[in-house]
């Protein structure tokens, strides 16, 4: 299965959430690979705690160089050998493969051409052959990366592969409207896909939303709020729920919701059990939400047609 991670805006939590989902799926025995297609700002290396590729890989052997045609295959990093977190070493027993195809240092967005589409399609098909889950982290908005993804998935060789689309957004008015626009608006994912030859209904069924950094009014984080503040928070939340439903991004297309987490607020990183239970810096609700998301990403029931 190929999972494209998108968002209308930058800074939504798309990369951090996707990296954590990748890790959790691998811990659940799945073979997972992660492609950093956010060509302008490749951050996956940093989130996965791999210093050497924190801002993308150097030396012209990353995804950008491959798509351009200057190397025969992009670099693949076995993350179990590279993640600098003691808790994940040695590779946890029973864990599946976890591989990163890093973006490139100093890269940027670039226009796509036919050969690039061929190479991209060949790479994604090969990875889908070897991995149960292939996560592609795309640049924000209606980017070249998104165009490329919609183009290759319309090709015959990839049409047979299950592909799914996640739209990440924060839990605010602006973000809800923007996410709905990216999915269903003009030049949005569904419209562009149809223009490129995708089956409309099938693609429509394969889009789900993930809400990130969602404040949970009932959580202990907000226990010290004044009653007026608490009431306002409840009210706003209810309004946002209504707005989301009106815009077609309500509960029926919601795959998961990750609460606002103190650790993630301060740092882009993996949330491990030790962060929750030993160091006690991350919330257990965050960890549970990421686990649920990791389950649902691969659970066909969560993606059943509506």
């Amino acid at each position: 299965m190929i999972l494209f991670a998108t968002s209308d805006k930058g800074g939504t939590g798309r990369s951090v959430t996707s990296c954590n989902v990748a890790l959790r799926c691998a811990l659940q025995h799945k073979d997972v690979c992660y492609l950093d297609f956010d060509f302008g700002s490749p951050t996956a290396g940093a989130i996965f705690h791999v210093d050497s590729v924190a801002r993308g890989i150097a030396g012209g052997c990353g995804l950008h160089s491959y798509l351009e045609g200057s190397v025969a295959a992009p670099a693949e990093l076995d993350l179990w050998r590279h993640i600098e977190r003691a808790e994940l070493q040695p590779r946890p027993a029973g864990a599946g493969r976890l591989v990163l195809l890093p973006g490139e240092e100093g890269g940027g967005e670039f226009p796509i051409d036919d050969e690039m589409i061929d190479r991209c399609q060949r790479l994604l098909r090969r990875l889908a052959e070897e991995f149960e889950l292939v996560i592609v982290d795309l640049s924000a908005g209606r980017s070249y990366a998104l165009q490329l993804a919609l183009e290759v998935t319309a090709r015959p060789a990839l049409r047979a592969v299950t592909t799914r689309w996640l739209v990440f957004h924060r839990w605010t008015r602006q973000h809800i409207i923007a996410a709905a626009g990216l999915a269903y608006g003009e030049h949005g994912i569904v419209a562009t896909a149809a223009a490129k030859g995708h089956n409309h209904d099938r693609l429509d069924d394969s889009v789900r939303f993930v809400r990130t950094a969602v404040p949970a009014p009932e959580s202990p984080q907000f226990a010290s709020l004044l009653p007026t503040q608490a009431a306002w928070l409840q009210e706003t939340d209810a309004e946002l729920q209504k707005l989301a439903a009106r815009r077609g991004v309500g509960r029926s297309v919601l795959l998961g919701s990750v609460p606002l987490d103190p650790v993630l607020q301060w740092r882009e990183q993996l949330i491990l059990d030790s962060d929750v239970w030993t160091l006690r810096i991350a919330n257990k609700e965050t960890s549970a939400a990421l686990d649920a998301l990791a389950d649902d990403v691969l659970n066909d029931d969560a993606w059943e047609g509506l």
């Binding site: 060949r122 052959e129 047979a160």
Partner: peptide, 16 residues
């Protein structure tokens, strides 16, 4: 592997 005859649904994943 890209042959249109193939359904792209291998019974399990295996490394090359």
């Amino acid at each position: 592997q890209e042959s249109p005859i193939l359904d792209q649904k291998p019974p399990f994943r295996a490394r090359r």
